[in-house]
Structures are given as structure tokens and as C-alpha cells.
Amino acid sequence: MEQIITIVFTVALVYLLLGLAFYPLFIIKGITQIDPGAKGSSWGFRLIILPGVVLFWPALMRKWIVIRKK
């Protein structure tokens, strides 16, 4: 039981760390490409979406890739 729980939490931790690594790249380059509303937005806004980016980064990355391909 303990082993399974440890594996699940390790996977979750890796997922969140990947999201954290994705954040600066996304904030600098990706955000204005996927959403025009982010152009000229404040750094306060970019900071407030940090938890969301860490949690939902695959959805943002997918959208960014689709837009770049177009």
C-alpha cells in the first residue's frame, strides 16, 4: 500500500515540477501567442496564473503547439 502511494505522489510531484519548468517559458513567449488578451497584461496577472499553469500545463502546451503549427 505504502509503495503504491509513494509512486502516485512521486508521479504527481514530477508532473507539478514539469509544470513549474514550463511556466517561465510560457509566460515569456507562449501566453501572448495563445491568448491576445494577455498582450500588455500586468506582471500581477502573470503571477496569479502561476498555480493554474503548474496544474494545467499540458492543455496550454497543446494549445500553444497547435497555434505554432498554424
Binding site: 495563445i34 494577455a38 496577472f45 496569479i48 496564473i49 498555480p51 493554474g52 496544474l55 494545467f56 492543455a59
Partner: peptide, 16 residues
Amino acid sequence: LLLMAASSHDFWLHNL
């Protein structure tokens, strides 16, 4: 509640 709070900005409404 974390997922909801983290997505409580119009940015998430548009992008999710």
C-alpha cells in the same frame, strides 16, 4: 477546490 481556485480567472475560462 485547488483546481477550481487555480482556474478562477477569465484567462482560464478562455483557454480551457
